[in-house]
């Protein structure tokens, strides 16, 4: 098949640097800080096994004597120093945060991908077909919107656990969580994509494709989809922050990932038990990490929304 990509073109990085989006990014200090913070956390999470000074999930490496070490102070018994202290079982808080962020981000990304796939597909179909298909899908969406999404995720999580045999519950928990959060968030994508599809499908380039009898699936995927992805990216970024918080909330409520694989939310739940006994660091550092992650991703989403909005440019 002939490819119309030019053979000689300017360096892709140069072109990206010169684009309007990149320009808007360079002009927004808040976006730069948010991007740096997110990237550091994401990088640390991905490379946790190599970056973490301890493996908090290897019981053999744990020493109960190290428990409750305050940050930056030598342990009273062993003399070991931990940057952010340790918890009741002597696990290094810094390491648990790295591993926790890894799980939080994994769940967040997967949930967003799931919600996106579902929302985009249904939104495209509803917007393009219209009629009763649209009515049914959008009424379902409306009904779902009347429930807080965290309640919905709780419900889905509960129902799913009922179906899964106890032996697999632990292993499947993380996937159930992803599906629960994804199902709770698809509506936003579907609505935005449906609206944009309804605008695009009446544009003349879509009519031109229909005149030659192009298949509807091809029109949807090749013509309309690329043109509705802008707003989807914005919601996806903000949705990532929301999904991370939803995961933390569920884990905090004790219905999320099992304590053997603690996410940031699980860490906060564990930590709050020690808040009033004086071991504040067990709660504070995971909570700060969650805050920094959710806030910076959200700020990035806000910036992206403004940058993609031609009216504000």
């Amino acid at each position: 098949m002939t490819d119309f990509t030019p053979e000689t073109r300017p360096n892709i990085f140069l072109r990206a640097w010169d684009s309007d989006i990149a320009y808007s990014f360079r002009r927004s200090p808040l976006a730069i800080v948010a991007a740096v913070v997110s990237l550091i956390i994401i990088f640390a999470a991905i490379f946790a096994p190599w970056l973490a000074p301890h493996d908090p999930f290897n019981p053999a490496s744990l020493n109960l004597m190290d428990g409750f070490t305050p940050p930056m102070e030598p342990n009273a018994f062993t003399g070991n120093v931990y940057w952010l202290g340790t918890d009741d079982q002597g696990r290094d808080i810094f390491s648990t945060i790295l591993y926790g962020a890894r799980i939080s981000l994994f769940v967040g990304f997967m949930a967003v991908l799931f919600a996106m796939a579902l929302g985009i597909t249904l939104g495209l179909i509803a917007g393009y077909r219209g009629g009763w298909v649209d009515s049914v899908l959008m009424r379902v969406a409306d009904v779902q919107l009347t429930f807080p999404s965290i309640l919905l995720a709780l419900l889905i999580f509960g129902v799913a656990r009922g179906f899964i045999p106890p032996a697999y519950r632990e292993a499947m928990a993380i996937w159930v969580l992803i599906v629960a959060i994804g199902l709770a968030e698809w509506v936003q994508y579907a609505r935005v994509v449906r609206g944009a599809t309804m605008v695009e499908k009446n544009k003349e380039y879509v009519q031109a494709a229909r005149v030659i009898g192009a298949h509807p699936t091809k029109i949807l995927v090749r013509h309309i989809l690329p043109n509705v992805m802008g707003p989807v990216l914005v919601i996806a970024t903000i949705g990532l922050a929301l999904a991370i918080i939803a995961e933390a909330t569920l884990s905090f409520l004790g219905v999320g990932v099992p304590p053997t694989q603690p996410s940031l939310g699980t860490l906060i739940r564990i930590g709050q038990g020690f808040l009033f006994s004086g071991e504040w660091w067990i709660l504070l550092f995971p909570a700060l990490t969650l805050l920094a992650l959710a806030l910076s991703v959200n700020l990035l989403g806000d910036w992206l929304r403004d940058a993609l909005n031609p009216r504000l440019r």
Binding site: K203, E204, Y205, Q207, A208, V211, I212, H223, P226, N227
Partner: peptide
């Protein structure tokens, strides 16, 4: 075939 009114909308920008 058909030729449309608005040349800004009749070509897929992507």
């Amino acid at each position: 075939q058909m030729i449309f009114q608005d040349p800004f909308a009749s070509l897929n920008p992507r």
